[in-house]
Every structure is written in C-alpha cells, then in structure tokens.
Design a protein around this nucleic acid. Sequence first.
DNA 1: GCCGTTTTCGGCCCGACTGTTTTCAGTCG
Length: 572
Amino acid sequence: MKNKEVADILSKVAALLEIKGDNPYRIRAYQRAAQVIESLSQDVEVLAQENKLEKLPGIGADLAGKIKEILQTGTLKLYEELKSEIPPVLLTFLEIPGLGPKKVKVLYEKLNILSLDELEKACKEHRLAKLPGFGIKTEENILKGIKLFKEKRGRRPLGEILPIAEEIVQTLKNISPVEQIAIAGSIRRRKETVKDIDVLITSQKPEQVMKKVTELPLVEEVIAFGETKTSVRLKIGVQMDIRVVAPDSWGAALAYFTGSKAHNIRIRELALEKGLKINEYGVYKGETKIAGKTEEEIYQVLGLPFIPPELREDRGEIEAALEGRLPKLVEYQEIKGDGHVHSKYSDGTASLPEIVQKAEAMGLEWVIVCDHSQGLKVAGGIPVEDLFKKKREIEEINKRSKKVKLIFGAEVDILSDGSLDYPDEVLKEIDFVIAAIHTGFQQSEEIITQRIISALKHPLVHAIAHPTGRVIGEREPYAINLLKVIEVAAQYQKALEINAYYKRLDLNDVNVRAAIEKGVPVIIGTDAHFIDQMDYIHLGTATARRGWCEKRHVLNTLSYSELISWLKRLRP
DNA sequence: GCCGTTTTCGGCCCGACTGTTTTCAGTCG
C-alpha cells in the first residue's frame, strides 16, 4: 500500500503552496486529497489501475492524474518544482506554534532565514520586529514556539491523555459554576493520538469558570484568555482549549468542537446547499435560528441521522448517512469478553483468580488467558509441562466461577521460518491459539507477510495478535503486506486482533475497516500484563467503532458458549 | 483544484483571540 507515501507528497505540496501564497481553495483541494488517500481502506494503486480514483470525493481529473504520476514515478513534477522555488526546510517552520505560512514567507524573502538556528538568532537580535506585521511580541512568541517545537513529543496516545482530561472535567464540575460540561475534539472521536484537550461548557458565569481554569494546578501557562475561549498549556506539555457557550447552543458547539475539521467543512457545505448557515452557535435560516440545542437536532435539520463521533472523519460517513447506510456501530456495553490477557504463568502479574475478579467487576463474561509460548524466554514463555498446570487451574476455576469463565489460550510465537513455537500435539490442547510476531522485525515485507500467512493457514491457529507490530510513537509497523494477510484471513475465516493496549491499537481504525470489508472477524484483546490494563478494552472498542464495526464483526460480542462454538470449529 | 435538481463559471466553513495595527491580517481550531 503506497497510500501513505502518496498522501505525504500531496500534503507537502499543499504546505508549499501555502507558503507560496497560492489560491487557498487549491491548497484545500490538495489537503483534502491527502486526507482522503491516507484514510482509504483500499489500496490506492489498485484504484488507480481500475481508473476509479475520480470516484473518490474531492479527486477530479487533475488530481487523479497527479496521483498516478506519483505511483508511476515516485514523485510529482509539481512537487519538485515547488521544492526548487521554496526550500522545503520552511515546512518545519510551519510546525512552530505561532508561525503560519504568511510569516514564514516573509522570513524567507526578507531575511533569507533557512534554519531554526538562524531564526532563533534573528529573533534575539530583534531583526524580526522591523518587518511589516511583526513586532517585539512576535519575536518572543516565536522564541517560545521554537523551544516548544524542540522539546515536543508530537501527538500523545489517547490512553495517556483521556484519563487526565476526565479528571479535569470532574474537577471543574466540583469547583466552578458549570451546568453542562463535556470533552470534545479528537478525544471524543477517540482518535488514537491527540494533540490537545478540548472542553466544552455551558455556564451562567463564564468569566468565573475561565478564571478557575487558569488556576488549575495542572496549568503551566495561559496562552489566550477570553470569556468564550481560553487556551492554556498544561504541565504535561499538552494544550487545553476551553469554550463556554449558552445552553441553547450546546449541541451546535459540541458538534463544532468535536470535529473533525474535515467533517465540519462537509457538514457546513451541506447546510449551504440547503440555504442554511451553521456556526458553533446554531443552524440559521436567514436570521432565524432553527437548531442548536442538541447535536441530534443539527444533523436532523440537514436531513441526516445522528453520526457517532468516532465516525466523524470525512471518510464517507456523510455519504453513508445521506444514503441511509450508516453502520450500526458495536456498542461499548455489547463487549462480553477480553480476548488477550497475560497471567503470572508468563510475564503477566495477575493470578487467574485476580483476573476473574477484575472481569466480574467490569461486567465481562469471559477472558481468554493468553500467555507467551516457550521460545519467548524474555517474556517468561511457558514450557510445555507448565501449560497443563495452567489448563487444570482454569478448569478448576471455571467449576467454581459462575459469572466469569476463563478460556485456556496462548500467544504463540511465529518463528522466523513461519513455523509455530509449540508442536501441533500441544497446540491441539489449547482452546485459543493467537499467533504473533515478536522477533525478526527487520525481515523483508515478503518474508514477514509469508510468516503471518503460513500461521493463518495453520489449522490450529485462530487469530493473529497485533498484526502490524507498531508501537505508537516508538516503533513503526514492520514491513508487511496487510492486504494479503487480510485476504488469507478472510479465506480461512481466522480473526485479526485489535490489540487494545494504548500504545498499540493494532490493527488501527483504517486497517480494521479494510479487514471487516473483506469479511474478516476481529477480536479485541487488551494484552494486559497488569490487572488494571484490562480497562483498556474500551480503547479497543473505540478502535473497532472508528473502523466501522458492527456487532456482527466483533467476536467479543459473543456469549461464552457462542465463542466456544466459534473456537471449536478448529477442535473437532 | 473541485463541483453542480438554483451553476460548466464562480462559488468554495466560520469565528475567537492576538498583535500590530488605527481597522485588520495572521493564526488556530
């Protein structure tokens, strides 16, 4: 899949055009095309071969041609030309908070600044303040921006920020006069990584709320302070935006601040076609406000059903809503089990009774206890003789435990030649075999893909764990042809995991969608090594929802007995 | 650059806050 590479070039073209000062709508067209290609669940190369690129929203004859050019030549003439006109190093300047395309252009043209160091030096020598539109404050802000840029860790995993955001909401509820309060933005959409925390509030006394916000102990710096909008930087290095609106604008504001930006733009265009205007305060027909109190209302006046936040990425959800084929997403409370938990038998820290207790507290019916296989010594892989001790303990526990059943599973290593880390006569005794790659990450795409495919074809394997091996912010996926893997999984009706650990979320949303479109069942597993990590199940469910999963696609919605029958197909 | 049961040309989402300005451009979400 070259989707990422194509999207990357298109988005760089957009940024270069911005600095050049080109037509903003042309820029938007490139940005949108980049986004459409990146979130595609199909292979852009296949679409190009079938001449279907122009069917994609926002892609016309010209962009289709440009995409083909990238696929054929690896680059784009326009891109190369722009790079010779505008030094690409300026693109990194755009990442500095406070610097946009206009100012970057001036810096380049008037001062010929071509590196971060030069920029820093020019600020300190007050050479910027003399430029039109610049001043002393601008220099200070750019210096601050450079510092933040240098120490920034980029987007942060949702699982890290969500609990903090929820705690802030709870605190604000307690200490300030808020009526309604909710987290919006990418956190509400449950995007796997987030850049900032958006909080929406209704209150009779906005100024008091805003004051309390700036006084929170977590706040490091106030970036902007207004009655309706306040921005602060938290000590953990994340920005938080707080918006206060009137109660009758709650729905409009919630929709607006939940985004995504691309979704909002489409929604507003749709409104314009109907002679309506939407902003964060409501939907207007001329001067008259006709909706705004609830989100449902907003969608309703546009003739649309409610679109769940997890779908709001302009990945076809608006078209689906218009045509009445929006998926009925799997619900968080429909999840009946956890497909992947480690115990003390390998490198987990929880005993089997502790797992049962936790599952019961969470309202789950079943947990598959998958420990590592014998070869993975660093992770305490279980030697064959101990496996049966674990099996007996599970049987004992299941006799006593009425509400929660444990399932005897194993996360079995796929060795570098594609064979499995237990012999068949052992695998046969294990009720759930999930195979995974933990070694040989550097192998070629062909070899890794083949390893996984041979595991999928193995008659005793039920599923593949964390299929791409990526770790968010730490490790890129290994080279893998996931589309081939999906095809084989579909053919053999084997499951692919949505690993719910907050740094994995693997498969990710786009890949989940690609899998279920081919008829591959998915199974959510937390990969918990500590008992509380079982709570990450909700992140896996969020990923399933972002991947357009309905209940029928997700094995975790099966009851214990239904799951056992699904597993037994391979254990006659 | 895209797009069309008001258009194949002339539109294209909308507003808050800051800083440099005396009325607004730039940035951001």
